[in-house]
Design a protein around this nucleic acid. Structure first.
Lengths: 263, 263
DNA sequence: ACCAATGGTTCGAATAGTGAACCAAATGGC
DNA sequence: GCCATTTGGTTCACTATTCGAACCATTGGT
């Protein structure tokens, strides 16, 4: 927090010290965490409290987030449905990579492709349909979601018969479990010809506000166009786009997700 | 906003101008709405934008709520899971009554509808929006809250001009005071066509850990469907649901609240 | 070409924020 | 029972920050 900031930014920065492990913070703790003067912190918190952004818990007088944030969140949701947000991210990602991109969301126990974007750069491209059901095994999006989903859910999916859409589809549960571990360590999934022949796709998970995976963002390219250069560019751009989308919809990645080191 | 307020309160008060009818507001509009100087509004909004509380939409540069509010709402839920707890209660209550149910919470001096559930049983149903502002007079939820709120607060509400949303809305303060007394003796409020025509709604107060009213739980049905049987079933189910919700969030009703005798 | 909007910027005057020091009330050793 | 430390909360002289009238630069309508 080395920068010069106005009073409002200072006040709001106090809210950043709340997280899943620290839902209540006392005045003295906040003073230490923020490095500001105690009187300043007190006054700022008093104002935040008047506006309902924080409230004081009963026992000690430590602060926690107030009910007002719920109202704002409901309005944000009404103003910015995830899909419209994702469209811009998808278009930018398509422009950057020159390939087809799509977003899929976990709805119930089914993964649906819900939005996509094409790049005008290349005449040949991977075609997509919205509301297409994706299998978990054999698609990069499905694997990305599975890698970060509730382990019980993943096991349930793997316990069912796994259909091979193409000769390349991997259907051995043991091999898939191994791949999921690998995805968890890199934060990105890929599949070569697992769903459609000749398609090389990459995918990253998208997380919601509760840090749970809600879907996946993917880039699908013809294998013939996957040059060495593309093999580097696409994962990079995809990672960035995934982080952007997760952030724009108010989500945050779980602590164990491989974070972007260059902020 | 005639009161003296610090910079932070001013900035946050700008956020109150967002609602369902106005999810995006331009600089000039905000200046007019708030009555502040344009330069002031601009600077405050710039700071809110830096913190991610608002963002500027693409086309014109009008502002809308930013993704940061979703993160805070998720944390608030982690600390005080009212919404997630209420969702289950609402769903059960909708299933039991066959009607639309909703929860509203008192935020500052404003009552906001924050969560709702529909019943699949009937094709016609009362529709709801989250984050809608409810009037105290003319809604069963508002009356339920007012009946158990600080008397000084109730009087302040009644001293202000009471708008009639429908021809059925009761706007006479004296008559409202009489109704509040009645609500206190029965523990349940009802309104027929006071907010939306042809809607018969019942509401019970919800209490926090300090025994103060924090909001209301309501059932809204089309008047045409309010048979004698429903007129008995709904209040019963609502009372039970209200007690359950108050209990689940760690609250307790004040001593003078008409308690469920059959525990 | 004009006018009336819009978003954005400037700068001296005035207000609002700052922080060291200070309370009173809980805690916690011992 | 006592001293020491910690807590949340408050004061007040100093000054940095915010305020607001007036200003620009664009845009869109006629």
């Amino acid at each position: 927090m080395g920068k010069r900031m106005g009073t409002v930014s200072k006040a709001l920065s106090l809210l950043t010290y709340f997280n899943h492990g620290r839902t209540e913070i006392g005045l003295s703790d906040l003073t230490r965490l923020s490095g500001m003067n105690k009187a300043t912190v007190y006054r700022l918190m008093s104002e935040l409290q008047e506006s309902g952004f924080v409230e004081q818990a009963g026992a000690d007088r430590s602060y926690r987030l107030g009910p007002q944030v719920l109202r704002l969140a409901a309005l944000r949701e009404a103003a910015v449905p995830i899909l419209s947000v994702s469209r811009r991210v998808l278009r930018d990602l398509s422009d950057e990579t020159g390939e087809t991109t799509h977003l899929s969301l976990l709805q119930g126990s089914q993964l649906n492709s819900l939005s996509h974007a094409y790049s005008p750069r290349n005449a040949t491209k991977v075609m997509m349909e919205d509301a297409e059901v994706l299998t978990f095994h054999g698609t990069s999006s499905g694997m990305a979601v599975l890698a970060y989903a509730d382990p019980a859910f993943a096991e349930e999916v793997l316990s069912q018969p796994l259909e091979a859409r193409t000769p390349e589809t991997i259907t051995d549960p043991q091999e898939i479990r191994a791949q999921l571990g690998e995805i968890r360590s890199t934060g990105i999934a890929q599949s070569i010809g697992g769903f459609e022949a000749d398609v090389h796709s990459h995918a990253v998970p998208v997380f919601g506000p509760d840090r749970k995976v809600i879907g996946a963002l993917a880039v699908a390219a013809p294998v013939s166009r996957m040059s060495a250069k593309q093999k580097q560019l696409i994962p990079e751009a995809l990672r960035r786009a995934g982080a952007t989308l997760t952030h724009r919809i108010g989500g945050s990645a779980p602590a164990d997700y491989p974070q972007d080191t260059t902020a």
